[in-house]
Simulated assay, not measured.
Amino acid sequence: MEKNEPTQNKYDAALAKYNTQLDDAEIAAKVAKLIAEKVPGNHTEEVKKFLFHCIDLTTLNTTDSDESVMKFTQKVNQFDNEFPDLKNVAAICVYPNFAEIVKDTLEVEDVKIACVSAGFPSSQTFTEVKVAETAMALMEGADEIDIVISVGKFLSGDYESMCEEIQELKDVCKEHHMKVILETGALKSASNIMKASILSMYSGADFIKTSTGKQQPAATPEAAYVMCQAIKEYYDKTGNKVGFKPAGGINTVNDAVIYYTIVKEILGEEWLDNQWFRLGTSRLANLLLSEIKGEEMKFF
């Protein structure tokens, strides 16, 4: 047991630098106040165009096929021709076995290829399998990797195993951005979300992301608020800048504007760039496009 003590303490020591004892009701009240006061002023065309440019356009269906993913990617290619005045989505997000199809089909510049990996969405498989899957996704053309923390290990207090696995996967990703999904709906409390955010950043996350979209509740403004607070405090203490990605359950333009507002108010203008802010969704693209164009659009 003694041999493990220093490593165990390393993670507790990292957490000890932050206030992780948060009051859920207090967070909910702060979020409600922020939404009421700040969101209405952000419902502008400029903000909606920016949000569109932050979308990780996602297809993660059991029914996905080479053909359906190719068509999905071709829509992104066509977008530039049909809407020359708008900036395209930030990335296309698919399962790892479709990375090559996206790479071969994608013709537009500045749209990244993101792959969910490492036993997504449950994260319940061997670390060796997670490493292999991530390496293969990168080899097939992924620019970015989205992984899920080992939620069970986190909830049972085994921070060491959880963090070492994230570090190992970051070593595989090297310079490629690795987004770490906390699955906030399973974490239940603001304190757990704060702890998981800090540990993920400490272990090498380039982005922290709310949810897989496969478990309810998915993204919530309260979880986003806590995660952005964690990013800010981590940046203030270490100088390391980490991105934020809400995903799952972003069903309306207003939802997206709420997340934009939280990022703007907590992290500031510096994070309002699609290098540091993404939205994981498929539904939102048409909704934003419809509001920007003032008519119903079913482009994607």
Results as ranks from 00 to 15, higher is better:
residue 155 L to Y: 03
residue 44 T to W: 05
residue 284 L to D: 07
residue 215 Q to H: 11
residue 96 P to T: 07
residue 9 N to M: 14
residue 259 Y to M: 13
residue 74 Q to G: 02
residue 54 C to H: 06
residue 180 V to A: 00
residue 104 D to N: 15
residue 278 R to T: 09
residue 67 E to C: 08
residue 48 K to V: 05
residue 141 G to I: 11
residue 219 A to S: 11
residue 139 M to A: 14
residue 60 L to W: 01
residue 5 E to P: 00
residue 31 V to H: 10
residue 11 Y to P: 04
residue 130 K to W: 08
residue 170 K to N: 08
residue 33 K to R: 13
residue 121 P to Y: 09
residue 133 E to T: 11
residue 11 Y to L: 07
residue 154 F to T: 00
residue 281 T to R: 03
residue 96 P to F: 09
residue 70 M to G: 12
residue 61 N to R: 11
residue 190 A to E: 01
residue 88 N to T: 14
residue 249 G to T: 09
residue 91 A to H: 04
residue 148 V to T: 07
residue 48 K to N: 09
residue 227 M to N: 00
residue 1 M to E: 10
residue 8 Q to T: 14
residue 229 Q to A: 05
residue 233 E to L: 12
residue 42 N to I: 00
residue 123 S to N: 14
residue 78 Q to H: 12
residue 96 P to R: 08
residue 138 L to Q: 06
residue 146 D to G: 01
residue 175 E to C: 00
residue 79 F to A: 05
residue 233 E to W: 12
residue 146 D to R: 06
residue 213 G to T: 10
residue 274 N to Y: 13
residue 211 S to D: 03
residue 75 K to S: 13
residue 298 K to H: 15
residue 41 G to H: 13
residue 226 V to G: 02
residue 154 F to G: 00
residue 171 D to Y: 09
residue 208 I to D: 02
residue 11 Y to T: 07
residue 281 T to A: 15
residue 209 K to E: 04
residue 99 A to L: 07
residue 90 A to C: 13
residue 194 M to T: 07
residue 174 K to D: 14
residue 92 I to D: 02
residue 87 K to A: 09
residue 272 L to R: 03
residue 117 S to K: 02
residue 88 N to G: 11
residue 296 E to S: 12
residue 138 L to G: 08
residue 5 E to I: 15
residue 272 L to S: 01
residue 288 L to R: 04
residue 153 K to L: 14
residue 168 E to P: 00
residue 246 P to Y: 06
residue 69 V to D: 04
residue 14 A to W: 06
residue 258 I to K: 07
residue 95 Y to A: 06
residue 207 F to A: 00
residue 292 I to E: 09
residue 161 S to Y: 09
residue 64 D to T: 10
residue 75 K to C: 08
residue 254 N to R: 10
residue 96 P to L: 07
residue 251 N to K: 14
residue 245 K to G: 02
residue 149 I to Y: 06
residue 286 N to Q: 10
residue 195 K to E: 07
residue 109 E to P: 11
residue 194 M to A: 02
residue 135 A to V: 10
residue 89 V to F: 10
residue 43 H to G: 05
residue 278 R to L: 12
residue 100 E to Y: 00
residue 48 K to M: 15
residue 273 D to I: 08
residue 97 N to C: 14
residue 264 K to N: 13
residue 40 P to A: 06
residue 10 K to I: 11
residue 158 D to F: 08
residue 141 G to V: 10
residue 282 S to Q: 11
residue 39 V to F: 02
residue 270 E to I: 14
residue 225 Y to D: 00
residue 69 V to R: 06
residue 110 D to P: 03
residue 6 P to A: 15
residue 174 K to H: 13
residue 241 K to P: 04
residue 2 E to C: 00
residue 56 D to E: 13
residue 242 V to N: 01
residue 29 A to N: 11
residue 253 V to Y: 09
residue 169 L to C: 01
residue 18 Y to A: 04
residue 174 K to V: 08
residue 46 E to N: 04
residue 47 V to F: 05
residue 86 L to N: 04
residue 123 S to L: 04
residue 120 F to N: 05
residue 233 E to C: 12
residue 93 C to E: 06
residue 134 T to A: 05
residue 175 E to L: 05
residue 298 K to S: 14
residue 121 P to S: 08
